[in-house]
Structures are given as C-alpha cells and as structure tokens.
Amino acid sequence: MTPFDTRGLKRRRFKDKIFTSIVWGLTFSCLLVVFIILFYIFKKGIGSINWALFTQGPKPVGELGGGISNAIVGSLMVVVVAALFAIPMGVSVGIYLADNRGKKWAERVAIAVDVLQGIPSIVIGIVIYIWIVKPVGSFSSLSGSVALAIMMLPPIIKNTEETLVLIPNTLKEASLGLGASYFKTTMKILLPTGIGGIFGGCIIGIARITGEVAPLLFTAFGNPAMVKSIFKPVDTVPKVIFAYASSPYDDWRRIAWGGSLILVVFIILLNAIIKLFERKWKVQF
C-alpha cells in the first residue's frame, strides 16, 4: 500500500474538471445565444433596410412597400419629451440622495426608487391612462412620454447619486469656503465634475425606454399618420413591430424586421456610448 491513497484525490480532481467544463460550457452557450439572436435579427432586418423605410409612412393593406417614417419620428418625439421630463427631476432627486446619505428620509426615498424600478411597465401604462388619457379623453404622445419618463427616473437618479458620492468633499468644501452658495457649488462644481456619470445615467434611461411598448399601448396608442403634435396619438417603432409581428402579410413582417434591426442597432449604439463615457469621464480622484 502506498503511503498516500491517491484515488480519492484523483476523483476530486476529476470532479473539479467536470465542474469547470460545465461552467465554461454554460457560459459559452449564453454568449452563443447572444450571437444567434443578433445574427438572426441582422439577417432578417438587413434586407428590409432601404430608403423607403425611413422616408415613407405605412401603405394601406394590400399595397406593397411603405415604411415607418411616422413611427421613427413618433419614437423620437416620445423619447425626447420623456427625457425632458425625467432628466431634471431625476438629477434633482439624485443630488438630494447624494447629499443626505444615511438620513432616514433619504433611505426611504432610495427604497422608493428601487421599488419604482421594479414596477411592471404595463402597470405604469394603466396608471397614466387613468391620470391623463381618461380625463383628457384621447390618447396622446404626451401621455406616452409621461409613462416613459417614470420608467427613466430610477437609472438617472441612481447614476447621479453614485457619481456625486464619488466626488471628494474637499472640492465641495473649497467652493463653500470661498463663499459660494450651496446652489452655486452644486451647479458649478459638483454637476460639471460628475457630468460623465450623470449623462451616462440619462443614456441608460433612454436605452431602457426606447424599446418599450407596454406602457405606450394605452397612452401613445398608435397612429398611421405622420404626427407633429404631442397632443395626438402617435406610432412608435416598437409598437409597429408589435402590430406587424404576427400579421399575415409578408410585407408587414419584412417592415417589422427592418424596424427591429433599427431599434436594436440604436440601443446597442447607446450602450456603446455609455461604456465610452464610463471609461473616459468616470470621476476619479
């Protein structure tokens, strides 16, 4: 008998190897899924990308061709207005949370922000329908923007807070010591220093809402015409994809694939911008 019984050790090593390969295998299948999905969307969508997709509105049933120009304009309109609502509000709450860390009310607000982030988007749609669409009596792009603005708030608030907390107190104290007011210190010192992170939060928010349909179903609704007023119902790109996805017409599905590709490329670009900002503008001291 050998002084060491190596059989147990071998078995444990073998188990370890199996375990490691399972982890590798599962991780790689995650990556594979990403590529399969993106490749499929790209393959299906690239054939539908043409000039008409961007410049024409939808054609009546039965006619071939047409595009989603009205939905692209609609999406931009809804998202930009939502951002106009959400950014000032979100940054304010973020500043509040960063300056009152550890206080009871700040903790409560932080929890509220977390809960807000977890609310299903369809529920936000219902509430905004009750708040705005029902009293006014018509669907509108504005109500869709309000719903999306609420969805945008949590990432903006969190990024603003996390960025501002990283800025050293000495910077703030120097400004206050020179006689600048709290308002001036925040506006001229803290926000410009943390602009990278705050901007990143805004982009994350925009990326989160650009592909949303659920909160828009009962608010922005849909409209085949080109709309230039925020008080009218409006089509958005994801809404058109939803409407066309299970349609029996090949041509509509073709347009939906084109729309999907545009949407995915746009959101991936936004994500790339976020990563770039994180690297270049991160608060470092």
Binding site: T27, C30, L31, V33, V34, I37, L38, Y40, I41, K44, A207, T210, G211, E212, V213, A214, P238, I241, F242, A245, S246, A256, W257, S260, L263, V264, I267, I268, L270, N271, K275
Partner: peptide, 24 residues
C-alpha cells in the same frame, strides 16, 4: 468582453424578443 456581450441581451427590446421567438 464576455460581460459586455451578455449585457447586450438586456439591450434587445422585449417586443423584438417576442418577434424573434415567434420565428425561431
């Protein structure tokens, strides 16, 4: 890179997932 690739899954809108699932 792996992390960023997996994060890409979060970039695809829900409706596009549905559309993709319908055809694959």
């Amino acid at each position: 890179i792996f992390r960023n690739v997996i994060d890409l899954l979060a970039a695809i809108p829900s409706v596009v997932y549905g559309f993709w699932g319908l055809y694959t």
